[in-house]
Computed example of a mutant assay.
Amino acid sequence: MYRFLERAVARYARWAHASARGRPPVQEVRRDLDLVVDELRPEAEDVVSLRLVDAGGRRLPGWHPGAHLDLELPSGRTRQYSLCGDPGDRRSYRIAVRRIADGGGGSVEVHDALRAGARVRVRGPRNAFPFITAQRYLFIAGGIGITPILPMVRLAAARGADWRLVFTGRSRATMPFLGEIAGFDQRRVWVRSDEEYGIPASGAELLEHASQDAVVYCCGPTPMITGVRLDLPASPADSLHFERFSPPPVVGGRPFRVGLARRGLTLQVPADRSALSVIREHVPDVPYSCRQGFCGTCEVRVLSGSVEHRDAALTEEERRDRMMICVSRAAGEHVELDL
């Protein structure tokens, strides 16, 4: 049984609530699939959904709510997107992407470059946000955070569980899949936009719908998740499981130097920043995806120096000479990378 904890930060920053228990490690899946964009449709302002199918009509690998795909774009960028369709549909996958103009370029490429008929490669599905069996649930989604939550709500309803859904966002125009949510039992749904209320919801307000001993699943922006996490102990809910779409804050970090051997550069990494964020300023095309230490995209060979590993992907053997630069740090003052 999962207990309340600071999940992502606990794994990567090595701290957690004193009563927390860690969730099981992500099971790595190395499965490349060449798929076709069968349909691309708008779902809200700056949000499109993609229906991906096998070009030959073959069945796709199964998945469970909470799973995601690594999507390799034509540019070579790799980004992760939650599966938000029907797990029972083995002929197609559905993902949704919000355009972020000042992001890393992946979402802009999806919106501007992909069209129906485009071929893409995906890896997965794999699950870093597993859905557990419970009698009562409270689902909290912020904006595009509704994507992993949708299949969870459907499965909870199919199982006959007691569930509630709170969906929040800047405005209804920016909140995807409202049409589908309108088909849910509306006695169990609260759609709350900041525009209508004049202010973002607090964690306590979002948790008002939690029943006694409910398991809370939360996905969305970091401020929303932080509010829910801080206010959870005062609520009747039992435990919290969350997934964020931005990197966790660096906690307990120390400054260090990172050397990029191929470029002859030595960079200073401050205590409150990741090696990846500093390296990207000088090497914009360095591969990355989840920025949370579980996908493996930013794995780099270590030439010298010891590493404080904060990832959830590398084996102990791999940790001898590998580093996930999105979360891990130098254990000493300097680490030299094969970059």
Rank of each mutant, 00 (worst) to 15 (best):
A158T: 12
R322N: 14
E336R: 11
R310V: 02
L138A: 12
L69R: 07
Y217D: 02
R51K: 14
D102H: 11
E318L: 07
V335I: 13
F167Q: 10
L314W: 06
Y93C: 00
T222Y: 08
M175R: 12
D311W: 00
V110P: 12
R291F: 09
P25K: 03
A16Q: 14
E180R: 11
D238Q: 14
L207E: 10
A96E: 05
P249F: 04
A16E: 08
A313Y: 15
L265G: 00
R164M: 06
P255T: 01
L69V: 11
A210E: 04
E109S: 03
A13D: 10
D162N: 07
R51S: 13
S289M: 03
W190E: 15
R79V: 02
L71N: 02
N127E: 06
P233H: 02
R59G: 04
E109H: 00
P248S: 14
P42K: 09
Q135M: 10
R254M: 05
L265C: 02
Y81C: 01
D54S: 12
S328M: 07
D34G: 13
A161N: 00
W163S: 03
V36I: 06
P125R: 05
Y93A: 04
F245P: 07
I181L: 09
A113W: 03
V302Y: 00
G296F: 01
V153E: 03
D46V: 09
